[in-house]
Amino acid sequence: MTIPLSLLDLVPVREGESISSALAATTATAQAAEKAGYSRFWVAEHHGMDGIAGGATSVVLAHLGNATSTIRIGAGGIMLPNHTPYLIAEQFGTLAALFPGRIDLGLGRAAGADGRLAQALRKDIVGAAERFPNDIVELQARFGGQAVGGVASPQASGADVAIWVLGSSLFGAQLAAVLGLPYAFASHFAPTHLDEAARIYRERFQPSATLDKPHFMAAINVLAADTREEAEYLASSTDQSFVALRSGQPLRLPPPIRDYRASLPAAANAMLEQVRSVRAVGTPQDVRESIEAFVERTGADEVICACATYDPQAQIRSLELTMDALKHS
């Protein structure tokens, strides 16, 4: 199978560990992904969460750029309502100058913040979300060298930054299609609208200076190990995190638990089952078959894999086993 594979890493903070160790683990993962042949390595902006250390996304990307040499690095994504387009243009224009031909800028409309965090950010999140399409157009103009509102962006002008629209609903699919931009769907945690979003994006896509045909990337939770039992055991860390998050009690990435699902009440199991509908967990052969079925279902042009493990070395081994299995399918 020749479809490109990429990685999404949230810079997870593990129980008993520090922010420094989380950043070190993500750096090692990015280096391993580059060596294994992954196309992109994305980190995502989250704020106010004890278990995720990627909030200062452009700073993290600068560090990852210095630690790698060829793999594309980027935001998956920047939550644009939290920022002004001018500052994001400066930040990612600077990254593009530091790491030419390697920078992706995935843009999301959700704030990733509640009312208290919106206040801390000094932002009108609701109003900014409504301006999301216009803000993307402004970013395109600034990277194209235009002085929007009479104010130039020297660091952004002419920068080679690949803009992506991200989404977990139909809005992003429609917007990406109208703007002629690549589209990435967050099916790893919100699979409900995956198939319809893919259809709408392709049917409504309008060629642009960026793309002459649609480019659709879908996310899937992936964990490969030597046995199915070991893979399910390792994946229980992210299962626990998901249940805790959806229950309003987010936590640091916990150690795995044997037979975790057996301990859950029916409501929590049903909640977990929804996100488990988009996953590839098991032996390398299991993972290959699941990813191939996922690609056949979605028609994805690219797949981005997500899944953290409590032991960082198990995550690295998983990405290596996954890539090797897909290369030899």
Rank of each mutant, 00 (worst) to 15 (best):
G54P: 09
G54L: 10
G55T: 03
G55N: 06
G55I: 03
A56T: 05
A56Y: 06
A56H: 06
A56K: 11
T57Y: 14
T57P: 14
T57M: 14
T57A: 14
T57Q: 13
S58D: 14
S58G: 14
V59H: 13
V59R: 11
V60A: 13
V60N: 05
V60P: 02
V60T: 11
L61N: 09
L61V: 06
A62V: 10
A62F: 10
H63Y: 12
H63G: 13
H63L: 15
L64S: 07
L64H: 08
L64C: 08
L64Y: 03
G65V: 03
G65K: 02
G65L: 01
G65W: 03
G65C: 05
N66K: 12
N66E: 14
N66R: 15
N66F: 14
N66S: 15
A67H: 09
A67Q: 13
A67N: 12
A67V: 08
A67E: 14
T68Q: 14
T68F: 13
S69P: 04
S69Y: 07
S69V: 04
T70L: 15
T70P: 08
I71W: 09
I71Y: 08
R72M: 12
R72W: 12
R72H: 15
R72T: 09
I73H: 11
I73G: 07
G74M: 07
G74K: 02
A75M: 01
A75H: 00
A75S: 07
A75F: 00
A75I: 02
A75C: 02
A75P: 00
G76P: 06
G76I: 08
G76M: 10
G77F: 12
G77V: 15
G77H: 13
G77I: 12
I78L: 02
I78E: 01
I78R: 02
M79I: 00
M79E: 00
M79Y: 01
M79D: 00
M79H: 01
M79W: 00
L80I: 00
L80D: 00
P81V: 02
P81F: 02
P81R: 04
P81Y: 01
P81S: 13
P81D: 10
N82M: 13
N82R: 15
N82E: 11
H83V: 01
H83C: 01
H83S: 01
H83W: 04
T84C: 06
P85V: 01
P85W: 00
Y86I: 06
Y86W: 14
Y86H: 10
L87W: 13
L87Y: 12
L87H: 13
I88K: 00
A89K: 03
A89I: 02
A89N: 03
A89E: 03
E90F: 04
E90V: 07
Q91D: 13
Q91T: 07
F92H: 00
F92K: 04
F92M: 03
F92P: 00
G93I: 11
G93F: 09
G93Q: 09
T94I: 08
T94N: 11
L95Q: 05
L95A: 03
A96P: 03
A96D: 08
A96Y: 02
A97G: 09
A97D: 07
A97F: 02
A97P: 02
A97C: 07
A97Q: 14
L98K: 14
F99E: 04
F99I: 11
F99S: 07
P100L: 06
P100H: 04
P100R: 08
P100F: 04
G101A: 11
G101K: 10
R102P: 01
R102E: 02
